[in-house]
Amino acid sequence: MQISKIPVVALEQLQNNVFLLKARSKELAEKSSPGQFFNIKVSDSYFPLLRRPFSISNVENDILTFMFDIHGEGTKLLSLKKEGDNIDLIGPLGNGFNLDDDFDTAVIVAGGLGSAPFPLLLNKLSKEKKVKSFVGGRSKPNVITWKLANVNIATDDGSIGFHGNVFQLIKKHENIFTENKCKVFACGPNPMLKALQEYCLANNINCELSTECAMACGFGICQGCPIESSDKKSPYKLVCKDGPVFNAKDILI
């Protein structure tokens, strides 16, 4: 965890509104693990004021990749970065996915930009493990399958893949959970995470969820990012410090 300024090596457009920001740092590349994030300063001034949190999407040699879409002012500024600019970032932050559990099949579940953290996860996953990915989006342009393996797609409007949401799609493939020792890794909108959480808890499936929340500091000093804990004794956890990845049994969504 540190403040760094690192050079941008490329800003690429992956598909319509989705961008990849690539920046070089050997040190940060080595320290980063899947599911962790960086809090990025999108401008050189204090406008906008706060940093913006982004998952580490991938690491290849000394290049870190962030994946984002243009949402508001901050991400718009980020999309204007170009080779040779420096970006100021804090991280890697938070607790990522745990790949050391006992499972033989990684089930990736992503909704929209929720695909962001998974290229790095697959990169770090032992080659012996099987992978099954379920990716959802509103419509074809919102489905992001970059560097994912064994992909099944669902769209709300049926423009590609299964017509329905990603959770309904998974239910159609339920047999994977009985035929393999699965662990679910999920990132996406809250309704998706919630449905998945209920399903996994009811069926005793190991499941980790990457959560989002408005953040100021990103490293535990502002108390701005609470998420309800399932442990009644300590009612809130912090998304930035205790998460953003939580085991499905530890939080209430």
Partner: peptide, 16 residues
């Protein structure tokens, strides 16, 4: 403390 959402960015500032 209060339930989320606890903070929001505003022009040149933040509410908490």
């Amino acid at each position: 403390g209060n339930p989320p959402q606890r903070i929001v960015e505003t022009p040149s500032g933040m509410l908490n």
